[in-house]
Design a binder for these strands. Structure first.
Lengths: 229, 229
DNA sequence: TCAATGCTTCGATTAACATCGAACCATGAA
DNA sequence: TTCATGGTTCGATGTTAATCGAAGCATTGA
């Protein structure tokens, strides 16, 4: 009937509460087994299996058999970006699943988005990288500058080692709570990993909340050149 | 059960084929009446009425009574951006509603996205504006530089007049066919309007195709400083 | 080979919702 | 007022699909 891609098909895929819960759980970036996802969505294993087959058919998740377990993960950051966008619309329409509780504030401050840092601290990191000329915008793409490569290297990240994969090095992702961009891509992932390695922050993969230790928050503020801790 | 916004609710809203068709029609940026949307989706008026009430409840569309007609339009560019994102996922998964026909090629070259130019020509315009320093990226936002304001003014656009509204002046929107950004916001709208005013291009609001006249394409290429017509 | 675990398939049930006919309201025109 | 048109509400129907119990594979470990 109409032109263009079949948007209803995948929107309906995301539109089922059980599947949406699974996708939300996968936004942590961690690969989860079918059983774990079933528990997450509050359904039995056989229902989950059916749902996961559909999500896989729609290209939203990617299976990975390992022994007798089957791990699922989001196919890419583009899927995560759309999910974040949907969260933004839902939040804007006031359709919050739970009234804003204590966890909600923590989520807005710092959380995992797929595999990188999101929330207030995520966008501040992104802003700092742009302002200092470590990242530059080239057309629709994001590029790491020379200065940025040095900065990353000093922080213990090897940018050249990240370039090998097929995935984009830098990518921006729209943040649903802040309504601005934060850093995604393998570099975004590397930053988050480093924060954990250094003991600055700890990510709770079950609820996506990232908690910064006091000294971690101070050093993070110093890293991005911010006055406030 | 889970934290965060209720993503399933609005995804399900978009997930119905009839509603998705309506939203797709509204991507042209034009406000359409309930009857027109019903015809677009191939359903009766009473069904359409029910759907539109739901879309309105979800904050995706905005009603506007005018006489005995009721015009609907997308609530904002953020909604359009999510729809484009979904199109990108659907296209990536190979779930095209129609096999790529002649209209598809035209859509990829130039089309309306909400109210601004998208497709190959849209992204080229965006790239040019960035490369020449007319637009600059500041954190997650897009700002019009001094030089950009002069450039816009010379092209017959009054940037200051656009700033008055509550809507963002510049905003980027991810293009589903090109997988990169093009210019949205009131400035994006102004550019598209100007192209039509000058007779460079004509937008078919029923199928979103934007056709450039030969001389219009030449002048467009000159505007963005491209060699090829 | 046997047992246990993780996942898939099949079948039947159930609930949600899209759809439309018909009647009902509101606006604008004669 | 009377008529026509655009839109909404109501009720009944039909289809879709989510759900789970039970049985079936597959992989691992003993």
């Amino acid at each position: 009937m109409k032109e263009g891609p079949d948007i209803a098909r995948i929107a309906a895929l995301i539109g089922d509460p059980a599947r949406a819960n699974m996708l939300g759980a996968l936004m942590s970036g961690k690969a989860l087994t079918a059983s774990e996802l079933a528990a997450e969505a509050g359904i039995t294993l056989q229902t989950a299996s059916s749902h996961l087959a559909k999500l896989e058919g729609g290209g939203l998740v990617h299976p990975r058999k390992q022994g007798r377990h089957k791990y699922f993960s989001l196919t890419g950051s583009d899927v995560a970006a759309v999910l974040e966008g949907l969260m933004g619309l839902a939040a804007g329409a006031g359709h919050l699943r739970t009234r804003t509780g204590p966890k909600d504030a923590a989520l807005r401050r710092a959380r995992l988005c797929y595999n990188h840092l999101a929330g207030d601290m995520g966008t501040r990191l992104f802003d700092s990288l742009i302002a200092r000329g470590h990242l530059r915008r080239d057309g629709g793409d994001l590029v790491l500058t020379e200065a940025g490569a040095v900065f990353a290297h000093d922080f213990g990240i090897d940018p050249d080692g990240l370039r090998t994969g097929r995935a984009a090095l830098c990518r921006e992702c729209l943040d649903w709570s802040e309504r601005r961009s934060h850093l995604a891509g393998s570099l975004g992932r590397a930053f988050m990993c480093r924060f954990e390695e250094l003991g600055w922050a700890r990510a709770d993969r079950t609820n996506r909340v990232v908690t910064f230790a006091p000294h971690g928050a101070r050093q993070f503020a110093a890293l991005i050149g911010s006055a406030d801790a």
